[in-house]
Design a protein around this nucleic acid. Sequence first.
DNA 1: CCCAAAAGTGAGTACTTACTCATAAATATA
DNA 2: TATATTTATGAGTAAGTACTCACTTTTGGG
Lengths: 214, 214
Amino acid sequence: MTRKKSDITQETILKAAIKIFSEKGYSAATTSEIAKEAGVAEGTIFRYFSKKKDLLYQIAQKTIDLFSHHIAFSTLKEVLKENETKDAKVLLKALIMDRMILFEQYFPYIKIIFYEAQFHEDIQAMIDKKIIKKGFLLMQDVFTQRTLAGEFKAIAPNVATRSLLGMIVAMFLQKKFIPSHYFTNDLEEEIDIIIDIFLNGIRNTASGCISVDS
Amino acid sequence: MTRKKSDITQETILKAAIKIFSEKGYSAATTSEIAKEAGVAEGTIFRYFSKKKDLLYQIAQKTIDLFSHHIAFSTLKEVLKENETKDAKVLLKALIMDRMILFEQYFPYIKIIFYEAQFHEDIQAMIDKKIIKKGFLLMQDVFTQRTLAGEFKAIAPNVATRSLLGMIVAMFLQKKFIPSHYFTNDLEEEIDIIIDIFLNGIRNTASGCISVDS
DNA sequence: CCCAAAAGTGAGTACTTACTCATAAATATA
DNA sequence: TATATTTATGAGTAAGTACTCACTTTTGGG
């Protein structure tokens, strides 16, 4: 059995809305433009979404659920489990690569919900509860575990998580918005540098610390 | 001699616009609301700014100039010079505290221009040229200098700069938007942790490296 | 092929928006 | 005080805007 026509139309409209919202922002986007992008009459939109705001909320809901349940934490957990016993360097690389793919793939979605979260407290609360908190908890487990094992210092795991995230997001945004003259051409090389900073710092250990590599 | 009345009115309108823009975003903000906030008639706005967009551009221009010339780089340079010979820890702390104060003070301005940069390529170009590039160049000097002195590793200075910035911005945004349950109550303590991560990494040096503190 | 239900349409509506302009008020000049 | 200039006003306007609804088209089962 083929999918119901109404489902297809609804999805087409949602996709068009995501495109226009992420290009112009929610407020500057118009329903007529979304209709044009979707290839339907303007009235059709309102058969599926009672208000313009409903479009935004459904996009937010969908994106957050997507991240929360199916993709984000299942692959994240997998990556974490796969590399549980491996070196921190290997674990972090797998982790970051996994996150980069997600970011890249869902960039329009992410742009919309993170921007609109500013103005809609309910969206903000959803992101906080279903993405940030969960993600942080998972990461904190990793840090706590390796701290107990003596591999990591006893640094506040939330600060460590947020710092790593900050470095990655900064890289990603630079790649997206000002890719011109700041980057090494190789993404993996750059990630390696970030991991090295995160694990070992930028201070020259030769001067004050004798490194014993395995 | 007192200031011309027209200058005062113009500034009042600009301030009102900054408030409304940063609260609702440029598109969702209305000229009638800005007029109300400024305590003037709607028509008055258009005696000083021919279009609504002119408001945005003047705000952007003003903010970028402010950052570029007067406040940002003069104090940044001062901080750098003052701490030139001191320990990296001291330098970075002075640097971050200085940036935090700026961020805090001009948060509404920053919000507006960084958000609208997405949609206005000219604003994006201005930010890139007058803030990001200049700031990065200054920071890179610091890193290059200390790398040559053997204090820092030979890590790509742009990546190092961006990583440090990413960690700070991540902290700042968390402080602004989700201050509830992630933070140690003490900001300075948190900055110390970030600097420690940045300089020494989170890996436990005791296991593979013998630290020699001064 | 028929017809009822489902899906789609787009002109129309009530409202808001950025922006104008003739007029009024405030201020400066003499 | 009288007059010229600058500054401020807010009703008015044309151009959207989100959203409605009477109507048409499409779909699928008997």
